[in-house]
Amino acid sequence: MSETLDIQRPAKELIAALKDVGAATIAGTLGHMGFRNPHMVGPVSQSRGKTIVGPALTLQFMPQRPDLFSEGEYADPETQLHRHVLYHVQEGDVVVVDARGDMSSGVFGDMMSTYFKGRGGAGIVIDGCMRDRPNVEKLDLSLWLRGWTPNYHVQTSIYPNAVNVPIACGGVTVIPGDIIVADDDGVVVLPVAMAARVIEESQSHHEWEEFSRSKLMAGGSLQRYYPLHDDARAEYEEWRERARTPQGL
């Protein structure tokens, strides 16, 4: 069993509340809070239409150096730390891998992905590649990657160095336990301490956007309805009250 540290997982209520909030809304909300770029550049959806929300388990790769790393994949499998991050997977977790943007090393393949699926993981995010695409796709996993390669994880120039440490993935700092939200727009990193505030502001934003969308679809003024102008605030409040009042009361 892995001796690496496990993560502190956020409250299930936070995860549940974020499931209906898209990556774009979270990124925009964080942007207004000073988090200028919570979006990972590089990993893109390999499974269109899927959305994940869950805490991050992290895996860090480094450039190979012969005095620090010996392959030993089958001679001593436990030296391969990409296995160890999977040992920690609980239902709903997201494995996030800093593979240094390497396009020639398949971090996980068929068997590791099968194990991840069996553990109930929510999804995998890699600033790099996976391998065994035909078999992995049969597992119907939620994946955000740079691409695919036939090479195994240490075949070329990188090796797994640490599990559940702070990493940089797609240009974004990821702390173990951070909330990962990913959909067709991409992957964003939400610090747990910001989650409640993001949820509150996102819900408010969603409400007025619904109102504005209906007005724009009816030919309303862009200047008046997006973003919502102060002159339209009373109209919006009236619409919101009607929407929240059960019919007939």
Rank of each mutant, 00 (worst) to 15 (best):
A27N: 12
A232F: 12
T114S: 09
G177H: 00
P134H: 04
E235F: 13
S105C: 13
Y115R: 02
H32Q: 06
R119F: 03
D93I: 06
D184M: 11
Q203K: 12
I26D: 03
I15L: 14
F35N: 01
V21Q: 01
L30A: 05
M1D: 08
D98Y: 02
S214Q: 14
G186A: 02
S70C: 02
M130K: 08
V187S: 03
G28Q: 04
D127W: 03
Q155P: 07
H82P: 04
V95L: 01
V174A: 02
H229W: 15
G106Q: 12
H32A: 06
S2F: 11
M103K: 11
F108R: 05
D184F: 07
V41P: 04
S113F: 01
E200D: 12
P191S: 04
V125K: 00
A193I: 12
Q90R: 14
A232V: 13
L68I: 14
N151H: 11
L190P: 13
V198D: 01
V96S: 00
S70Q: 07
K12H: 13
E91A: 13
S70W: 04
E13Q: 15
E13P: 14
V154E: 04
L68V: 10
L228Q: 12
F69K: 11
L30C: 08
V96E: 00
Y152P: 12
Q64K: 08
G219F: 09
V198F: 00
V188N: 09
S45Y: 15
R197M: 10
T58G: 04
Y159C: 11
V89S: 13
M194I: 02
V181W: 00
H82M: 04
P150S: 08
W148G: 03
L14K: 05
P38L: 01
V44Q: 09
R36F: 12
K12R: 08
P66D: 14
R244Y: 10
M103H: 06
V125E: 01
F116V: 03
D98H: 04
E73Y: 06
Q155E: 13
V89Y: 03
S2N: 14
G34S: 05
G171A: 08
P55E: 00
L249N: 05
G22Y: 06
R133V: 07
I52D: 09
I167C: 04
Q223N: 13
M33H: 13
